[in-house]
Simulated scan of single mutants.
Amino acid sequence: MNRDERIQDVKQQLTRSRWEHTQRVMETALELAERFGANKEKADLAALLHDYCKFWPEAKMREIIVTRGLPKDLLSYNRELWHAPVGAEIVREELGIQDNEVLDAIRYHTSGRPHMTLLDKVVFVADYMEPGRRFPGVEEVRELAREDLDQALLKSLDNTIQFLVCKGMKVYPLTLFARNFMVDLVHQPKPKEESL
């Protein structure tokens, strides 16, 4: 399947506004990949496919979580999380995507995880801050992403957790683990450069 065929498959799964969002995520992911040295082809593919199952019926996603051995604890949390791990399974099965790095970037673009790869970070942050996003804190993430992808990711996770807490919603544990991991990573002492 070539890129144009994949694009047509994705467009059939999404609303017009969500397809426009996906295009902006692709553009942003390519910019971040270029800036921070990630694989641009993989960033483009993961961004293209990241919301593949976004509008699937809740019952269908629930069935896939149960029957495909995905983490059952997902079912106890907001269904907005579900399309990412479900989508990774479906694009592997139906679109033949076998690259585990691409699949993981899709799988964790809503929750994050500890030890995120560079590609994971690029797709997560691109989805969070694409130019169409308008909510408190997104401009700060955009500013941070000019220089430091890890700082931008940490701020994205902080904002997401604060939003959920303020709404009285549960926070998925993997998101907390991702945030705690990034706190340690961002705040660890930097090695001193040796003077010449």
Rank of each mutant, 00 (worst) to 15 (best):
residue 156 S to R: 08
residue 14 L to W: 04
residue 22 T to G: 05
residue 144 L to N: 07
residue 106 I to C: 10
residue 168 G to L: 15
residue 106 I to T: 08
residue 38 A to H: 07
residue 163 F to Q: 05
residue 57 P to Y: 11
residue 80 E to I: 14
residue 86 V to T: 07
residue 103 L to G: 07
residue 177 F to T: 00
residue 165 V to A: 14
residue 6 R to K: 13
residue 126 A to R: 01
residue 90 I to A: 15
residue 35 R to E: 07
residue 181 F to C: 10
residue 88 A to I: 00
residue 107 R to N: 13
residue 28 T to C: 14
residue 110 T to Q: 15
residue 50 H to V: 00
residue 134 R to V: 03
residue 21 H to A: 13
residue 146 R to D: 09
residue 166 C to E: 13
residue 56 W to T: 00
residue 164 L to K: 12
residue 67 T to H: 09
residue 94 E to L: 09
residue 123 V to G: 04
residue 90 I to D: 11
residue 64 I to Y: 08
residue 195 S to D: 15
residue 58 E to N: 06
residue 87 G to P: 12
residue 149 L to Q: 08
residue 68 R to W: 12
residue 13 Q to P: 12
residue 135 F to Y: 11
residue 103 L to F: 02
residue 190 K to T: 13
residue 193 E to P: 01
residue 148 D to V: 00
residue 185 L to R: 15
residue 103 L to E: 00
residue 100 N to E: 06
residue 108 Y to T: 02
residue 40 K to A: 10
residue 120 D to C: 09
residue 157 L to I: 01
residue 6 R to L: 15
residue 79 R to I: 08
residue 194 E to C: 06
residue 7 I to P: 15
residue 83 H to L: 02
residue 9 D to Y: 04
residue 99 D to N: 09
residue 61 M to A: 04
residue 11 K to Y: 06
residue 159 N to L: 13
residue 153 L to M: 02
